[in-house]
Design a binder for these strands. Structure first.
Lengths: 208, 208
DNA sequence: GTCTATAGAAGGATAGAC
DNA sequence: GTCTATCCTTCTATAGAC
């Protein structure tokens, strides 16, 4: 089943090197700010050789975005309808923060794209993303109906989780500038802070 | 005291038109994605005429960023050390959300700049911004010491407020895509949601 | 102050040798 | 598969007439 187009070992290696370099450059400078030269240099290839593997700059960008989208949404998919509600959501928060810490380039790649109106992945937002979010919001609404978590708007709960966790990747330069020397353990403190934030929001009976 | 360089009425009008057009274009496409032609067209001027008012594309961008920075930080400056603590912070959240709703272009202008490492305003982050944040964090720490709000890390509290409110401007296209038809009243619901989120976090005695 | 025309540089993509 | 050389478009910025 490795049919149609088996890639040689060197092809796989070069494609991977290009995508990794492109992730670096696109996430740091945005689509227009990135140059093919820069990506090729960082991948250790010449520009024409890079364009032997991908037909255009745009094709590299699209390949990156679509290839990483499933990785980026995996944490939400893991939200278990049969788990303990508050802990399930807190685990999701924790996992999203770990993603921001471990994969800040991926976070900034999507941030760049979305801030500028998501010209290349808009269909993914209204399609697969929306369906996944709606599905998980129904789960959360069920928990609320059964009184297992405090009543909140599920969609806006998810927005708050995305915003607070991805902030540490997307706005990292600002976070570090504001914290100064105290920035070193920012993720550890953020983890504790966000656990408290969402724990107090969701624990039923904690507020009227 | 209108000395040194009094601008004629037409100069003021054109400068304002250029800056407004530049805000539109830079916030939508980022620095590199924006073109001087596009800004000139939208401002109703020819490109050379635009460059008669500003020496370069970069100069327009810097003028925008520095000119808007104080506007952008004004809400935090209004945080009153002598006010009622929880209400002061909730008022700040509310004001920031109103800013995101009313001035989404400004929010995205800064988002674009910071996601890409803040090459043009990094000194403002480590300087004035950090000083202002530290000052207000000291106020918040004082409130915590007196038991007026629940103990939280003040810096990360501010990060959470920035993240959750600006999310509705910076990631607007994603918010609308996910909400679909329900997007129309997103700011009203967000307002209620965020008030609850931070109210439950900060109200003392609500949790152990 | 405002325009037309254009210089000069940068970047995406291709030709063609090896 | 990989390179050197180059084409062509786009973009910033300027020259110079009005």
């Amino acid at each position: 089943m490795t049919a149609t187009k088996p890639l040689t070992r060197i092809q796989q290696k070069n494609r991977a090197a290009i995508l990794d370099a492109a992730l670096d450059v696109f996430s740091a400078h945005g689509y227009r700010g990135a140059t093919v030269d820069q990506i090729a240099l960082q991948a250790g290839l010449s520009k024409p050789n890079l364009l032997y593997y991908f037909p255009s700059k745009d094709a590299i960008h699209v390949a990156l975005l679509t290839g990483l989208l499933s990785t980026w949404l995996a944490p939400l998919e893991q939200l278990d309808p049969d788990g303990e509600p508050v802990e399930e959501i807190l685990k999701y928060v924790d996992l999203k923060l770990t993603m921001a810490e471990t994969y800040p380039r991926e976070s900034r790649l999507f941030a760049n794209e979305i801030v500028q109106g998501a010209p290349r992945i808009h269909d993914n937002l209204t399609g697969p993303l929306r369906r996944l979010v709606d599905e998980k919001c129904a789960v959360i609404a069920g928990w609320i109906a059964r009184g297992l978590i405090a009543p909140v708007d599920p969609h806006h709960l998810i927005f708050s989780i995305w915003a607070t966790t991805q902030h540490y990747a997307d706005f990292d330069v600002q976070v570090r500038a504001v914290l100064g020397d105290a920035a070193e353990n920012r993720f550890a403190i953020a983890r504790e802070h966000l656990r408290m934030l969402f724990s107090r929001l969701l624990t039923p009976g904690a507020a009227g």
